[in-house]
């Protein structure tokens, strides 16, 4: 009885210390995860690079808007230049939305017929292509838009894009800078590496001229615009 009591106190103290240390360790870990300055230098450089790219694009946008503003204030009477201006803006929006066919250089990702692919793999590849600054994407003959559905049809046991069965070999075409798109897919630990784990080996080829089809216009029934403040 005496000997039992003897070891009880040191063990109690040790466990108490252990508990305190675990909680301290956990909190250090939490701050470690949330503090930006404790991230890996490589990751910070990546974030900075993306911000820089984004800023460059926004500055071009701003410049174009300034030009438009000037054109509008210079000749409000001249309908011709206003029409040009409006047509240009409309074309750009239609390209962005994917409702007109486009062409340009880029890459083609071909997934062979016998690949054990799931629909989320297609979602991953498309996401990586957008992250690598793709300007337009199509899966087989379906243009990828903000309202594109990529899903697994349980009845038909097949992957569908916009409700249409995907046939293999499946090709994903992306218009953009071929080098940026290609290296984005091949990032260490990136999308091609993840697919290789499942023995899926898509073929990536660069093209100087790709043709992408248009998507049909969206049929929206629930969303309403909130008008911008009048100035």
């Amino acid at each position: 009885m005496d000997s039992v009591k003897k070891w009880r106190i040191p063990v109690l103290i040790t466990f108490l210390l252990l508990g305190i240390m675990i909680s301290v360790q956990f909190h250090t870990q939490q701050t470690f995860l949330s503090d930006l300055s404790l991230q890996k230098t490589d990751d910070l450089v990546l974030i900075l690079q993306r911000l820089h790219d984004n800023r460059t694009k926004l500055e071009v946008d701003l410049y174009n808007l300034e030009q438009q503003q000037q054109a509008l204030s210079n000749d409000t009477s001249s309908g011709a230049s206003l029409a040009d201006n409006l047509k240009k803006e409309s074309g750009k929006l239609q390209t962005a939305l994917g409702v007109i066919p486009v062409q340009g250089p880029g890459v083609t990702v071909t997934i062979p017929a016998d690949s054990p692919i799931v629909y989320l793999d297609l979602v991953d590849i498309v996401n990586e292509l957008w992250a690598s600054q793709a300007e337009a994407i199509a899966i087989n003959d379906q243009r990828v838009t903000g309202w594109t559905t990529v899903f697994w049809d349980k009845q038909k046991m097949t992957i569908t894009v916009n409700g249409k069965d995907i046939s293999f070999p499946c090709t994903i075409k992306a218009v953009g800078n071929p080098d940026t798109l290609d290296s984005g897919l091949r990032l260490l630990g990136g999308v091609l590496d993840s697919l290789a784990v499942f023995k899926i080996y898509p073929l990536v080829s660069r093209s100087t001229e790709l043709d992408l089809p248009a998507a049909g216009p969206p049929v929206f029934r629930y969303v309403q615009p909130v008008p911008n403040p009048q100035q």
């Binding site: 946008d61 066919p101 800078n177």
Partner: peptide
């Protein structure tokens, strides 16, 4: 931004 340096309307 929506910007197109490579894609052109067909």
């Amino acid at each position: 931004s929506y910007q197109f340096s490579f894609a052109t309307p067909k």
